[in-house]
Amino acid sequence: MTDWQHWVVALIVALCVWSIVKSIRSFFRRSRKGGNPCSRCSGGCSSTTK
């Protein structure tokens, strides 16, 4: 692989990590504010808790 390909791969990995960290922070921020952290789940995870 050439040098520019390493930079492209590193950029893609960094964007994936940033996206994961952002979603985890958003989940905990909603739960800290008293909101339902499962409100945006597509599987309806809030209905499984009783």
Rank of each mutant, 00 (worst) to 15 (best):
T2Q: 02
D3A: 09
W4T: 13
Q5S: 00
Q5E: 03
Q5D: 05
H6G: 02
H6A: 03
H6L: 05
W7A: 11
W7T: 11
W7Y: 11
V8M: 07
V9P: 15
A10H: 06
A10L: 13
A10G: 09
A10W: 13
L11T: 09
L11C: 04
I12S: 07
I12E: 05
A14Q: 00
A14P: 02
A14R: 02
A14N: 01
C16R: 00
C16Y: 00
C16P: 04
V17I: 12
S19T: 09
V21N: 06
V21L: 07
V21H: 04
K22Y: 09
K22F: 12
S23C: 12
S26D: 07
F27E: 12
F27Q: 07
F28P: 09
R29Q: 09
R29L: 08
R29E: 07
R32W: 13
K33Y: 07
G34N: 06
G34L: 11
G34A: 10
G35K: 03
G35N: 09
N36M: 12
C38V: 07
S39Y: 12
S39A: 15
S39W: 12
C41F: 05
C41Y: 10
S42M: 00
S42K: 07
G43C: 08
G43S: 09
G43T: 09
G44H: 06
G44R: 13
S46F: 00
S46H: 05
S46I: 00
S47H: 06
S47N: 14
T48K: 02
T49I: 15
T49C: 14
T49W: 15
T49K: 15
